[in-house]
Amino acid sequence: MQTIPAIDLLDGQAVRLHKGSYEEVTVYDQSPLNQAQKFKDAGFNHIHVVDLNGAKEGKFVNLPHIQQIIDELEISVQTGGGIRSFEDVEMLLDAGLSKVICSSMAIKNEKDWLRSLEQYPENMILGMDLKDGKIAYSGWLETAEESVESFLSRMIDRGLQEVLCTDISKDGTLAGPNFELYNDLHKNFPEIRLIASGGVSSLEDLNILNEANIDAVVIGKAYYEGRISLEEMAAFNA
């Protein structure tokens, strides 16, 4: 199982939201480059970066900070937040991003999402954020009517290879992942690469996800709050 450290960017700072609320923000590092350097020094060559301004505003805002990380540290970055069109996807890939995570775009602009999926299948990740069992989008402020099972099946038929699934009720809570959700997704859709996100609170959580053969996990607050060390995270990638 691959462990992927996370940086959430808000106004150019590394932060975490509590359950997706922009009213509950904790700043962990004023320099995202400094934070990314710590990850690289610990042996990580791939990180997860979210543009929280972009997710809320509908346009990618923090690209200069991400490009600085890529250019100066020469590490691989997957990113999401504020991506709304095929042109946005091309812009980010041209800027050096290794993978682009789309959530709102996949719901609100399916035509461009499918075009991106067709043209860049290995670079596209579906960001499937779940709120009360429904797919949430637009900064987690709206939910889709189509069921998770129906939507995923359609996307897999169109070439989807990778899904990053976040249980919003667990995000930033340190309450433990939604193991049942990830087990069900892994069982029902074994052909996709599944990245778990949200709620990881301990090394034990990582061991359970690893034993369940989940492909990867994004780790944020558990690291920032000292619940899991970079050395413990990196051991899974050895």
Results as ranks from 00 to 15, higher is better:
M1W: 03
I4N: 04
L9R: 00
L10F: 14
A14K: 00
V15R: 05
V15F: 07
R16A: 00
H18N: 12
G20A: 02
G20Y: 00
S21P: 00
Y22Q: 07
E23S: 12
V25Y: 03
T26S: 09
V27D: 04
D29W: 01
L33P: 05
N34V: 05
Q35D: 09
A36L: 11
Q37T: 14
F39H: 01
D41H: 10
G43T: 04
H48F: 11
H48P: 12
V49A: 04
G54K: 02
G54P: 04
A55W: 09
G58P: 08
K59L: 12
F60G: 00
L63E: 09
P64G: 03
I66S: 01
Q68F: 08
D71I: 01
D71N: 13
E72H: 12
I75E: 00
V77K: 05
T79I: 13
G80Y: 05
I83M: 04
F86E: 04
V89C: 04
E90T: 12
M91E: 11
S98A: 14
S98R: 13
V100R: 12
I101A: 06
C102N: 02
S103M: 07
S103F: 05
S104G: 00
W113K: 10
S116G: 15
L117G: 09
P121S: 04
N123P: 03
M124N: 09
M128N: 02
K131C: 09
G133R: 03
G133V: 05
I135V: 14
Y137R: 05
L141V: 09
E146F: 09
V148R: 13
E149F: 12
L152Y: 10
R154P: 05
M155L: 15
D157I: 01
D157V: 03
R158V: 00
G159F: 03
Q161Y: 07
L164K: 05
L164Y: 06
C165I: 12
T166M: 09
I168D: 02
D171H: 10
A175K: 12
L181R: 01
Y182A: 07
Y182V: 08
D184G: 13
D184Q: 15
K187E: 12
E191T: 14
E191Y: 08
R193G: 10
A196R: 06
S197E: 08
L206M: 12
L206C: 02
N207W: 08
N207L: 13
N207H: 14
N210F: 12
A212Q: 14
A212V: 04
A212M: 14
A212E: 12
N213G: 05
I214W: 09
A216Q: 11
V218M: 02
I219P: 04
K221H: 04
K221G: 01
R227P: 00
R227K: 15
R227M: 11
M233C: 08
M233Q: 01
A235T: 09
